[in-house]
């Protein structure tokens, strides 16, 4: 009986596994991310570079409305210093008010302010991008099947040679990994799109990896704390389960013999 049941389970998992891969017709590029796995952690330098990429490349179209500048200095993230965070925030202007005269005014952003949005609302964003809405990137990695690998694949999935069965309309680009292989965003990242100050070679791959790492952190800012807590709790529970099992064995040890 157990055998049958086991076979059911194996068959079931095999089938579901199949179902997941079927949706993504093209296999995504798999990257060995430092934040994957049980002990996964973010590479701080990479996150800092990733923020630079976001700021210089993505931020002109994509908002990140759930993030505040202070997050950049928080533990488990890019961990910029307090002064650096202040300096980053002060590069932006935000609207505040109303003041005593009842008027709105602009002031320099503070670390407590949210990331400044490129467009005031989604219709303005659409109008400026030929009808396509550049999605907010705060939780983008969690909102896509395949997560970090998917976003990375899309960034790397632009090709000059377009398959003959695909015809592109005006303002639409070919992408290997996008559903329907069509994307409205022009290729955002090329070799040397940004200039890194820490001497890292700004290749297309490196830039994409950095920005995807940054986006992963943005979507899951407590990832490091979660994995750390998870590991500790599992060790703790294992010990407690073993102790509980020993106690149960002891309590039940003389029950069978009563027969």
């Amino acid at each position: 009986m157990i055998k049958i049941f086991r076979t059911f389970l194996i068959v079931f998992f095999f089938l579901t596994q199949n179902s997941f891969s079927e949706v993504n017709k093209t296999d995504l590029i798999k990257v060995n991310w430092p934040f994957d796995g049980f002990f996964g952690k973010f590479d701080k330098a990479s996150l800092q570079r990733g923020f630079q990429v976001y700021k210089e490349v993505c931020a002109s179209c994509h908002s990140m409305r759930h993030l505040s500048y202070r997050n950049l200095g928080e533990k488990g993230g890019p961990e910029f210093s307090k002064e650096e965070v202040k300096a980053i925030a002060s590069q932006f202007e935000v609207q505040d008010g109303p003041n005593q005269d009842g008027e709105m005014f602009t002031r320099t952003a503070l670390p407590s302010d949210k990331f400044v949005k490129p467009y005031s609302n989604s219709n303005a964003a659409r109008a400026a991008n030929g009808g396509a809405y550049p999605p907010d990137m705060s939780v983008l990695v969690k909102a896509r099947k395949g997560g970090a690998n998917y976003v990375y694949s899309v960034l790397m999935g632009y090709a000059d040679e377009i398959p003959s069965n695909i015809t592109l309309e005006e303002g639409v680009y070919f992408n290997k990994y996008m559903t329907g292989n069509k994307i409205r965003m022009p290729k955002p990242i090329n070799d040397g799109s940004v200039e890194y100050t820490d001497g890292t070679n700004a290749s297309e791959e490196q830039i994409s990896k950095d920005v995807v790492a940054f986006l992963t952190w943005a979507a899951e800012p407590h990832l490091e704390a979660r994995k750390r807590t998870g590991f500790k709790s599992i060790i703790y529970l294992l010990i407690l389960t073993i102790l509980g099992f020993i106690i149960k064995k002891k309590i039940w040890s003389n029950i069978e013999t009563k027969v």
Partner: peptide, 16 residues
Amino acid sequence: SKDLVGMLIFILIFVA
């Protein structure tokens, strides 16, 4: 004692 063991195993899987 038996339920406790069952619960702990369940919690372990859940936490993982």
